[in-house]
Design a protein around this nucleic acid. Sequence first.
RNA 1: GGAGAGAUGGCUGAGCGGUUGAAAGCACCGGUCUUGAAAACCGGCAAAGGGGCAACUCUUUCCUGGGUUCGAAUCCCAGUCUCUCCGCCA
Length: 421
Amino acid sequence: MHDIKYIRDNFENFKKKISKRNNTTKIDNILDLDKKNRKLIQDKENLEKEKKNISKSKDEKMFLKSKEISSSIKKLSDEQIKIKTELENLLSSIPNIPHNDVPDGSNEKDNKIIETKGNLQKKNFKEKSHFELGEKLGMLDFDLASKTTGSRFVFVKDKLAMLERALSNFMLDIHTLENGYREISPPLIASESTMYGTGQLPKFENDQFEIKLEINDGRKFLIPTAEVILTNMVKNQILKQSDLPIRLVASTPCFRKEAGSYGKDTKGMIRQHQFYKVELVSIVEPENCSEELERMTNCATMILDKLKLPYRKIILCSGDMGFSAEKTYDIEVWLPSEQKYREISSCSSCGTFQSRRMNSKYKNSKNENVFTGTLNGSGLAIGRTLISIIENYQTEDGSINIPDALRPYMNNIDKILPISS
RNA sequence: GGAGAGAUGGCUGAGCGGUUGAAAGCACCGGUCUUGAAAACCGGCAAAGGGGCAACUCUUUCCUGGGUUCGAAUCCCAGUCUCUCCGCCA
């Protein structure tokens, strides 16, 4: 959600910055709606004052007049609410303003590589894809999933299932013990207002799995990421300055419809309707957002360093960022079978964009209630980490070595062999 | 699924038709005292929105939405949420 006062005072600048984003909402009539809205408020308030005075005076001769005023107020108020709703709907579907650090650009081709790390060791055999390896091991079963459920789901079995669980524990341990995050095991279902708070609604309803609890219950959705539920923990709250920063981590399943990516990554478990992800969320004083984003991104890359997986860090251009983000770093891991880097984490600062939607504030050092800053990042996507380990640690015979850092989480085995052997 | 109870400022909690935006306490901020701290005492302290360069001022808000009334935190209706007890259950 945007600050209407800021837009009012900086409209041209606002318009220019939003035009750099992938935005489909028409913004030209914002000022007009704002003007109408304020005019109606003023007219309404004048009448309200008059009415108040009559009732205070207890002058019976004026009682009839007061009744008339009431109906005029009702009319004005209805009109004002209509305009205000229109304005709010408009504002709530405009993406966040890009941070000054963000490079201009229209799509992923304009993202900038910031750093590349790790060795792309050349193997003396042709590297296989994770799904080929996983199916050969008998531990990834896509056919079975399509039988029980449908496409874009997978059964992970045996040692790969254990590896998936190990990754979750490994990441949680690092973020809680080394990086100072508080571990949360949250609900996986979010209410409509929660989904609105982080920006999934109203614009991206098509990507969400809506579920039915009871007929008269409010709308509920499976979380597409733990960001939604963790960030909203501070919804409708005024925090103390000493509460900040709040750093939260959760390992949860995530559910996405992936509407609009038909035909994309249909093979393998790169893009699934359901996947595990370890998510980091920070609630901070807004002036600390940039600093916190660097810190958070380092917390994410730290995992890849420990797993000795090659990766690169990029900054997304204005046209490629998510709706709520003002600045985003993507971390991409090397996938030998594709000879490409693929996204494994995305770390974003949202500034006060989400906290305005959530109404999340804190008392600053001047004792004023101001909106908090929110950040979120994957640390990391478990499914994709699993893929990258399978592919990067494969051997010629099709078995998978276990990275040293994970062995304590894998009963100290050093290798995953096919089931038959 | 059955039976009750409740929802008031950051928190606890009074008020149950007319200077009540709301007592009191806690928390918080400022001051006096103290070598420093604590204690004690004094003072301040809800939010949102509109107008104004500003000092300031106006409006709204006591869960939400309707209704009664000149006037509602207070009365009536509907809904939401929370809690307790019983049943069922991971």
